[in-house]
Amino acid sequence: MTTTPVSPEDVARIVDHTLLKPETTSAQIQALVDEAISLGTFSICVSPSHLPVVVPEGSDLKVATVVGFPSGAHKSSVKAAEAAQAVADGVDEVDMVINLGAVKDGNWALVESDIAAVRAATTAPVLLKVIIESAALTDDEIVRACEASERAGADFVKTSTGFHSTGGASVAAVSLMAKTVAPRLGVKASGGVRTGADALAMIAAGATRLGLSGTAAVLEGVASGESEQSAGESAGY
């Protein structure tokens, strides 16, 4: 378990301010950058088609993108090529989706090699986060997916895309993921984290990064001491 940050500023510093809707415009991406800087978030996370993103000079805002998104059902070579292009476009972090079919088949060698292919295309200092779609997995599958991610060289494991019908992040999944790989790997909670209470619950469970689209509202909730918790009740950014 981690120590819960006590201020909105502390929470903001671990947020990936996210906009992954397919209809997103270039003007909305610019607005996302401006808002992220205003809120003090760690990074923005955008779709690959919007890269490269120009961050104002003097800002330490990081840029993340997604690979194999949102299904994960892409060939490993395609994911690797997508990741390599993202690196060429200047990203700081890559969030890839795991091969869920391989997980359900129990083909852990394929799960690991799929991650390793993307890892090879995202050499340091680019960070690699592996989205395991935890709501679609059993506890045993969550553990094994996290272990495969660590063996393949990932830097983070991440709960969800926010687009899967089974739902988004849950406190139970974050806790299990953290128990399995923390502190060696980071744990990112994303999908359905919409209130200050949600965010603080995820952090208390072991999340070291949060994927949020409604960041301003979440930070306002933290500031107001929001107590009503809805964590894990609904999916999506």
Rank of each mutant, 00 (worst) to 15 (best):
Ser227Pro: 06
Ala117Arg: 01
Ala120Gly: 15
Ser76Phe: 02
Gly162His: 06
Val11Tyr: 04
Glu35Pro: 12
Ala173Cys: 07
Ser165Cys: 13
Val94Ile: 11
Leu51Tyr: 06
Ser175Thr: 11
Tyr237His: 11
Tyr237Cys: 12
Thr18Glu: 05
Gly40Thr: 11
Val87Asp: 00
Ala169Lys: 06
Ala109Ile: 09
Ile115Ala: 01
Leu176Phe: 10
Pro183Phe: 08
Glu133Met: 10
Ala88Met: 04
Val181Phe: 04
Glu228Asn: 08
Pro48Gln: 00
Glu133Leu: 06
Arg209Ala: 13
Gly106Asp: 04
Gly90Thr: 01
Met1Pro: 07
Leu39Trp: 14
Thr122Glu: 01
Gly191Ala: 09
Arg144Ser: 13
Val63Met: 03
Ser170Cys: 04
Leu100Ile: 11
Val55Asp: 08
Ala145Ile: 09
Val11Gly: 12
Gln85Ile: 00
Val91His: 00
Asp95Ile: 00
Val97Asn: 11
Arg144Asn: 15
Ala136Met: 15
Gly168Met: 06
Glu228Arg: 12
Gly225Glu: 13
Cys45Lys: 04
Ser227Ala: 15
Ile115Trp: 02
Gly72Tyr: 03
Ala80Gln: 02
Val103Phe: 08
Ala216Val: 12
Ala73Gln: 13
Thr18Asp: 09
Thr4Phe: 01
Thr24Pro: 06
Ile132Phe: 15
Cys45Ala: 15
Val53Thr: 01
Pro125Lys: 01
Ala235His: 13
Tyr237Asn: 09
Asp60Leu: 08
Gly68His: 05
Ala84Leu: 01
Lys158Tyr: 11
Val66Phe: 03
Arg13Glu: 15
Ala136Phe: 10
Val111Ile: 04
Val126Arg: 00
Val55Thr: 04
Phe69Ala: 11
Val54Ile: 14
Glu112Phe: 02
Glu147Leu: 15
Leu176Gln: 15
Phe69His: 10
Ala217Gln: 09
Leu51Arg: 02
Ser49Gln: 14
Pro52Trp: 00
His74Trp: 07
Ser227Leu: 09
Ala88Val: 03
Val157Lys: 10
Gly153His: 05
Met177Arg: 11
Glu133His: 12
Val218Arg: 02
Glu35Val: 07
Val54Lys: 08
Thr161Asn: 10
Gln28Pro: 02
Asp60Asn: 13
Asp140Leu: 13
Glu228Ser: 07
Trp108Ile: 07
Met177Pro: 10
Leu219Val: 11
Asp34Thr: 13
Leu128Phe: 10
Ile29Pro: 12
Pro48His: 00
Ala64Val: 00
Asp16Thr: 07
Leu137Asn: 06
Asp60Phe: 13
Phe156Met: 06
Val33Glu: 10
Ser224Trp: 05
Ala116Trp: 01
Thr195Glu: 10
Ile131His: 06
Val55Cys: 03
Leu137Thr: 02
Thr2Trp: 03
Gly214Glu: 07
Gly90Val: 00
Ile132Val: 15
Gly225Arg: 02
Ile14Ala: 04
Ser165Asn: 11
Leu110Pro: 03
Asp60Tyr: 03
Thr166His: 13
Trp108Thr: 05
Val130Asp: 06
Ala235Ile: 07
Ala12Asn: 12
Arg151Cys: 03
Leu110His: 11
Ser7Trp: 08
